[in-house]
């Protein structure tokens, strides 16, 4: 087993190569999940802050709730 980890004396090069790859690929996946989760939460909050209606993205709907979501607009 220690033979395997020694990699014929090249352990200092082989393992970091696999380590960097694992770090980058896992890091990207985790970051992707985080953005997806947080943007879905924001969307849900935005939708929840408006009065329920059947068709989203309609001018008349926006006109009936002019003040809602004003705080979020400032961030964007």
């Amino acid at each position: 087993m220690s033979d395997f980890f020694a990699m014929g004396g090249y352990a200092a090069f082989v393992w970091p190569a696999y380590g960097v790859a694992a770090l980058v690929l896992i890091g990207l996946l985790v970051a992707t999940f985080k953005t997806l989760r947080s943007s879905e939460t924001t969307l849900k909050a935005l939708e929840g802050s408006r009065p329920a209606r059947r068709r989203p993205r309609r001018n008349d709907a926006a006109a009936t709730s002019p003040k809602v979501g004003a705080a979020e607009v400032g961030e964007g």
Binding site: L43, L46, E47, P56, R57, N59, A62, A63, S65, P66, V68, G69, A70, E72, V73, G76
Partner: peptide, 9 residues
């Protein structure tokens, strides 16, 4: 788009 429509409304 939701924020845009709200900003315009």
């Amino acid at each position: 788009t939701m924020r845009l429509t709200e900003a315009q409304g």
